[in-house]
């Protein structure tokens, strides 16, 4: 049938037929057409350096920071969280699963959890003071902002006074949840409004669609 033709023509790159795409739609906030539009985006990102249908770290870096090099703490974390199978590349299903968390209609609980794992740099199950300091320093460096160490410590003290309810110097999952629910603006970067209009951002999916919704 049509799908066999696609497979032969594009080898491994078009492994995602209608069945896989609708499966991804079922397990996410996305419709089949939106998953198809995401597939257009995925194809673009996954062929920017090595055209193999997988997103490598350098490709994610290139998309996010317009340069395939330059070290970035957050890129490492984002890549790590997107790469569910931990095999060093982002596959399309992983891409959809991760972006699903950033959907405007995704449960807040999922966003809270994703942000926690993002900030738990060493994956100890806690956001530690040192990690927070490391992240703030990274941000100050990239934005050429200068802050004295005293001021930096004061900001972190104040943050921990608010977030670290049991005062043990680290923020656990429950404390994080309480903290974020009191400061919902901290989750703003966990929502990408674009995902609601992904089919208009990537209208070219129409040429490849297998369903009309």
């Amino acid at each position: 049938g049509c799908c066999d033709f696609h497979k032969n023509k594009h080898h491994k790159k078009l492994r995602y037929g209608f069945r896989e795409l609708s499966q991804l739609a079922r397990e996410s906030q996305f419709t089949v057409n939106e998953v198809e539009a995401l597939y257009e985006l995925f194809k673009k990102l996954s062929s920017s350096i090595i055209d193999d249908g997988l997103i490598h770290k350098e490709e994610l870096q290139l998309a996010l920071f317009k340069s395939p090099h330059s070290e970035n703490l957050f890129l490492d974390r984002v890549f790590y969280l997107f790469d569910e199978k931990k095999n060093g590349v982002i596959e399309f299903d992983e891409f959809v699963h991760a972006l699903n968390v950033f959907h405007p209609y995704a449960p807040t609980e999922d966003k809270i959890d994703f942000a926690f794992r993002l900030y738990d740099l060493r994956q100890t199950g806690f956001i530690e003071r040192e990690e927070v300091k490391q992240m703030v320093i990274a941000i100050l460096l990239e934005s050429d902002m200068n802050l004295s160490d005293d001021l930096l410590e004061a900001i972190i003290d104040k943050t921990f006074a608010d977030a670290d309810a049991d005062n043990d110097g680290k923020i656990n999952k429950e404390e994080w949840k309480d903290f974020v629910l009191r400061h919902p603006n901290l989750l703003k970067n966990m929502t990408l409004p674009y995902l609601k209009d992904i089919t208009t951002v990537f209208p070219s999916f129409v040429f490849n669609t297998e369903v009309e919704e």
Binding site: L41, K44, L45, A63, L64, F65, K66, N72, L73, F74, L75, V78, F102, A115, Y119, V132, M135, V136, A138, I139, E142, S143, L147, L151, A154, I155, I156, K158, T159, D162, A163, F179, H183, N185, L186, L187, K188, N189, L192, Y194, V201
Partner: peptide, 25 residues
């Protein structure tokens, strides 16, 4: 004044933390 800001506010506002660039905006 910056002391009134919480550390996670700084982090979450950072450009690095914005995945919007994925869409090639």
């Amino acid at each position: 004044k910056p002391v009134s800001m919480n550390a996670f506010e700084l982090i979450s506002r950072s450009q690095s933390f914005n995945l919007e660039n994925l869409f090639g905006k």
